[in-house]
Design a protein around this nucleic acid. Structure first.
Ligand code: ZN
Length: 276
DNA sequence: CTTCGATCCTGAGAGC
DNA sequence: TGCTCTCAGGATCGAA
């Protein structure tokens, strides 16, 4: 499912293609993903607007459009944005098609229909629910060991729970959380405020390393993730614990374990990530 | 403050 | 073969 590295990859794959292009038309096959405006009004609202920029915040994509509009997209689990020729066959789960001035189409497909679209005035961007509550960007200068240490002081819940909390750190999902904790040698159920200074430093390093590595490999295609060109990522080959229950740990050979944390499937090495 | 369960949805895989 | 069941999960909400 798209997490920070995947959304970043989608952003990069689309930015060179969309910026400067005008939206000529919008075809809606399924409107359930559209939160704002009323789906009936979206076509009229977006027609004739140009893409001015694409940004990422956490797992959100923010398309800046002409006339002070913003299109905010969250792909959730199975959302895909594809820049393709209009003649290219449509995926069965294609819900939205934006026809562009260059004869190409920006298509939105979403098997599970959980993704969201918000087309709003740019001025309302800072107040958009979900987006407005996002915490620190883990690949920005705001994410420091000091900040992390301070933040964890009063978190009396599992460290995995904290990593998944988008209002604290924006962009980490289930797969990268498990990989980060494995890399840091930290059991996912460790109470956050009990982490040692050394563990906090390990956690910080692992977070930056794994997210960057994910981006370098153009994301993780564990289910149906592809970028704006329909290309799969490569990071799934490098996953060390996620989805590997029973397989030997690459570091120590112990079988990878699986448990549930916060209702999420959670993979870890019982030996390299001892429970305290 | 915290966890927990339900909700949205569909397809893959298991079990029979 | 084909049915039913479980599982997967990001974000949000209400309840405990
Ligand atoms: Zn190990």
């Amino acid at each position: 499912m798209p997490e920070l590295p995947e959304v970043e990859t989608v952003k990069r794959s689309l930015s060179g293609k969309l910026i400067g292009k005008e939206i000529r038309d919008l075809e809606i096959y399924f409107s359930g993903n559209i939160r704002r405006p009323d789906p009936l009004l979206m076509g009229e609202m977006i027609r004739g607007k140009k893409f001015l920029g694409i940004d990422r915040r956490g797992k959100y994509l923010i398309f800046t459009l002409s006339e002070d509009l913003a299109l905010v997209v969250h792909l959730r689990m199975t959302g895909q944005l594809l820049y393709v020729d209009a003649a290219f066959p449509k995926d069965k789960h294609t819900h939205l098609v934006f026809s562009l001035s260059d004869g190409m189409e920006l298509r939105y497909a979403d098997l599970r229909k959980f993704g969201t679209f918000d087309l709003i005035p740019l001025s309302e961007l800072p107040q958009l629910k979900g987006l407005a509550q996002l915490g620190v960007e883990p690949l920005s200068g705001d994410f420091t060991v000091q900040w992390l240490d301070q933040m964890l002081q009063n978190k009396n819940r599992s460290i995995k729970n904290v990593l998944l909390d988008q209002t604290i750190i924006a962009g980490i999902g289930n797969i990268y959380a498990d990989e980060i904790l494995y890399e840091g040698g930290i059991h996912p159920e460790t109470i956050a405020c009990n982490l040692t200074e050394d563990q906090v430093r390990q956690l910080w390093q692992a977070t930056v390393k794994l997210l960057n590595l994910g981006i370098e490999h153009r994301g993780t295609s564990i289910r149906n993730y592809v970028d704006g060109d329909g290309r799969q990522g490569g990071f799934q080959e490098l996953l060390k614990v996620y989805g590997r229950r029973g397989e030997p740990c690459v570091r120590c050979g112990s079988p990878i374990g699986k448990t549930k944390v916060q209702g999420r499937g959670t993979y870890y090495c019982p030996n390299c990530q001892p429970k305290v």
